[in-house]
């Protein structure tokens, strides 16, 4: 994997057919003096399921947040499905910062599920799910309702359609949040420590929904998680992330069973001890 590409890549290379689902090139991000992404390069293939592990504060969540446009990178380029996320291409292949409209159009390929659910408390579970299909995708209310009920059924919450988030348990909330994100039919789904805020006994129900999505196989998934057993079971690839950089990159077997780097060993030791 190339490690020396801080400058924007020529557009021709990026718009190749069969482009990566997600591609980071020299992405840099710092909060003050704290560098959280250090010239990051990363390719994720369509349909690939990538689990990102690493100590807290290592910047792994920032990868997802930058991809979701919740944080702007300080430098580098990101493409989604072959299209630049933060840049627009001129005719001569040069890149200039993208406007809101362009970002919105690329962003429609991405969905995200949050650690703290971020459900809208003033809407019922069903209304949470229906919002984007109606407002963003122009579906009719009845179509959106049918879709919402179908998704609620899928996550096992059909009978909670009318309940508001305040009336649901943490695991139920997170399942609604997953359904809400599925309703926008994203090609790439980001899962940011989606089980960390849950009581231990509720983790299983959420993981089983994630497993279902993974089994369908068409959605590209990027997951930040501390659930190593789940990572081993679901992931095609595991990234060990530390100090703003990818420390190790390999199959779950390679990284979790047989880590090469000392810092990975320390991290896994701490996690499994726990």
């Amino acid at each position: 994997m190339p490690t020396n590409a801080p400058e924007p890549q020529p557009a021709s290379e990026v718009s190749d057919k069969g482009a990566a689902a997600v591609r980071f090139r020299g992405v840099h991000k710092a909060f003050g003096d704290n560098v959280v992404l250090r010239d990051l390069d990363l390719n994720v293939e369509p349909g690939e399921r990538v689990v990102i592990i690493g100590p807290s504060g290592s910047g792994k969540t920032t990868i997802l947040r930058v991809l979701m446009t919740l944080e702007r990178p300080d430098g580098g380029t990101i493409t989604v499905g072959g299209r630049h996320l933060y840049h627009e291409e001129g005719r001569d292949g040069s890149l200039r910062p993208a406007g809101e409209k362009h970002i919105r159009s690329v962003r429609s390929d991405i969905g995200m599920v949050f650690q703290h659910f971020n459900l809208f408390p003033h809407m019922s579970a069903l209304e949470n799910i229906m919002l984007a299909p109606v407002q963003v995708h122009g579906k009719s209310k009845s179509e959106a309702r049918a879709l919402g009920l179908e998704l609620l059924e899928k996550v096992g919450l059909a009978e909670h359609a009318n309940h508001t988030p305040g009336e649901l348990s943490g695991g139920q909330k997170q399942r609604v949040a997953i359904a809400r994100s599925l309703a926008t039919d994203p090609a790439v789904m980001l899962f940011d420590e989606v089980t960390s805020a849950l009581d231990p006994e509720l983790v299983g129900e959420v993981l089983s929904v994630l497993r279902d999505i993974a089994e369908e196989g068409s959605t590209t998934m990027l997951l930040v998680t501390h659930e190593m057993g789940f990572a081993r079971e679901v992931a095609d690839r595991v990234l060990m992330f530390d100090q703003g950089q990818i420390l190790e990159d390999g199959t779950p077997e390679e990284i979790l069973r047989n880590p090469q780097e000392q810092r990975t060993k320390d991290f896994l030791g701490a996690v499994f001890e726990h």
């Binding site: 919740l70 949050f114 971020n118 919002l131 984007a132 949040a177 926008t184």
Partner: peptide
């Protein structure tokens, strides 16, 4: 988080 979720839904 409310704004972030609505960005993620592309509103």
């Amino acid at each position: 988080g409310q704004t972030e979720a609505s960005i993620a839904l592309n509103l």
